[in-house]
Design a binder for these strands. Sequence first.
DNA 1: GCTAGATAGTAGGGTGTCCGACTATATGAC
DNA 2: GTCATATAGTCGGACACCCTACTATCTAGC
Lengths: 171, 171
Amino acid sequence: MTFVSTNSGLPLDPIAEARRLWAEHGWAHAADGMAAVTSLMRAHQIALARVEAVLKPHGVTFARYEVLMLLYFSRKSSLPMALIGERLQVHPTSVTNAVDRLEAAGLVRRTPHPADRRSTIVELLDAGRELAEAATAELNTEVFAAPWLAPATVGSLIEVITELRRNAGDF
Amino acid sequence: MTFVSTNSGLPLDPIAEARRLWAEHGWAHAADGMAAVTSLMRAHQIALARVEAVLKPHGVTFARYEVLMLLYFSRKSSLPMALIGERLQVHPTSVTNAVDRLEAAGLVRRTPHPADRRSTIVELLDAGRELAEAATAELNTEVFAAPWLAPATVGSLIEVITELRRNAGDF
DNA sequence: GCTAGATAGTAGGGTGTCCGACTATATGAC
DNA sequence: GTCATATAGTCGGACACCCTACTATCTAGC
């Protein structure tokens, strides 16, 4: 919802403009909500692009990096597919997709579950562990250590979204 | 980056857990940044799912709805493809894709630009205008008027992300 | 004028997400 | 014990996004 209607050459904030138009059309009660949702969409786009740019040379995407880190932090460097999907809050098919590619790249390995033959265990391989560490080091210095916000503001963002997630029934 | 390592049955916040693990691994300086980025990813996922659910019965996705609203607010209910991509901050091919589907659904129409033969004007049709109004009405009441946050918090979220976007060179 | 470079739009390819459907396996009710 | 139900994972399809490459057209410098 980022649109501007003026023709001035000034660099307006498209979201603030959309918010103004919303109010003008009699939707003032929903203008802030629209602006908040649109802001989230754009912030996500910005953050993801930044992260993906750092990960690209390592040969993984953010989705696959998340799987690697989940395994990296797990006790035995291995987890069932279902648990991965649950933790990362994505659809089972998304896990299948990510693990397919990680396995093809030699970063993880599928293993049958010893007790439950329906289940598949994903195991982090050495190459995957090394990639996870290298990618994290670069991600930390290039993105996470210096977001686009002052330290206090970062905390504020985390707090607000934590409230949002809680109210949405996320945890 | 939403992963939990404990085995307690308590419903922990996965992002808070990831943040703790980050700090434990000597990455304390980047823990907040990681949590902020991960929070944005998840908030985006939640908000988008909510919006798409409302739009689905109207037969459009959020991406196409944004195009419709952009045209809806434009002076002559029509804009060049390039301008749409610029305002919505998406790649030109994404605009082609969205307009293809909107045109197939009879909601917009492509028209040659009178002066610049490279350019294509997208024009909002009556059906598109009606759909935009109906979808917006429902979106306003179902999502935007009642986000998952208290009114003051919504304002706070918008402010923080505005700062983020400005620092990222977004406007 | 005419050519080199910029701009508009599209096609093809890759990736991620979801949904619905399907197979295989496990579990619980009777 | 046996059968209905639930769960784990995968496949195919739809949609969004981006990138690279390509054509068509415009614009500016000489």
